[in-house]
Design a protein around this nucleic acid. Structure first.
Lengths: 181, 181
DNA sequence: ATCAAATATTTTGGCATTAAAGTACATAGG
DNA sequence: CCTATGTACTTTAATGCCAAAATATTTGAT
């Protein structure tokens, strides 16, 4: 019996829940675990990105544009990143101010704003990606096998949340649900 | 081959990463999965809590006080919830304005502020908890077995992140690392 | 006893996110 | 045409989070 108040705070929370609502304790523990891991990962990743002056949100946007061949419409970026359109406006504005990204109105449709990464942006994106890879995204102490297994289980969770089709029935009917309902 | 651009956006990202940095693609996919699941869970949970006027952060603080016997120091709340002290100040202020929580200075140490749940707060906490339990915290479509397995794998991840001791060696030496370094 | 260091909380500032309203543009139907 | 409706993006407002500075209080060392 450890002397510190909580050896594993999630196990402790599970016990408390189990004492009152045993039917729901397991799902509660899963949710709490996801939240906690996300919190820890995010802080490690942002620590790695800090030298490059990038938040994780900014990195994701920049990396998306780095992968893209040419320019992307703002709306497409929001879809891919699965964030609100206003968030795209925010992050692209800040990247643009630093000269990492350029905006221009689409010649085809003047409602559309296209974002394109600059060469300075490409350089920074490559460096930041290298740093993240080197740090294994904060998961250096996790074996690749553990990573693969965890991802597989989380895919089940995503399936239960409607983010993906049943894993054993790939290619059935693609879904095109709006991200922002 | 699905006709929609991304059948599973995480599998797609894994392929892209694997083509360039095969050593790191598995860890990247794990991180991306965690982030995505957290996002989906949080939005479901906040949807469930909306009728009670609670965000998830507010719910967690309120529930912590509901479980506590008496009053808790603000700092203790931050430790338990693993959030920044400023966040505790914020959320308690808002709960206090709604009459769900009361603040008072500790008689023992006048630097310390104690927070205690009111009876109105207890009632609301109980109702919100019932709603979350009913919704299985957004994971109603996940079996309990899947929930348990996922939690176990995430415990490995937490262990790799230093959040918990090695799962097979419980009770070694309790750690008392500060949450906010 | 006094003064420096540590502790507990709040304040301030910056960034992120969402919802809702506003602006500009495109398109389809009369 | 030209108007109604829809689309793409931005702006605004509210909330939340963290980091760092500020404030108040206690503790420890000389």
């Amino acid at each position: 019996m450890p002397s510190s108040p909580f050896f594993d705070s999630i196990a402790e929370a599970h016990r408390q829940w189990n004492a009152r609502w045993p039917e729901h304790a397991d799902h509660m523990a899963t949710v709490t675990s996801v939240m906690r891991v996300q919190q820890l990962l995010l802080s490690r990743i942002e620590e790695t990105l800090k030298p490059y002056g990038l938040t994780f949100a900014a990195y994701e946007a920049l990396q998306l544009l780095a992968f893209a061949r040419g320019a992307l419409p703002m709306g497409k970026m929001g879809e891919r990143l699965m964030v609100h359109p206003a968030s795209v406006t925010n992050v692209v504005t800040r990247l643009e101010q630093r000269g990492l990204v350029e905006r221009r109105v689409s010649p085809d449709d003047r409602r559309v704003v296209l974002a394109r990464i600059t060469s300075a942006g490409q350089t920074l994106a490559w460096q930041a990606t290298e740093a993240l890879n080197e740090s294994s995204f904060g998961l250096a102490d996790l074996t690749r096998a553990q990573a693969v297994e965890t991802t597989a289980h989380l895919r089940d969770v995503r399936a239960a949340l409607g983010d993906v089709h049943r894993p054993d029935q790939a290619g059935t009917s693609p879904r095109d649900l709006p991200v922002h309902p």
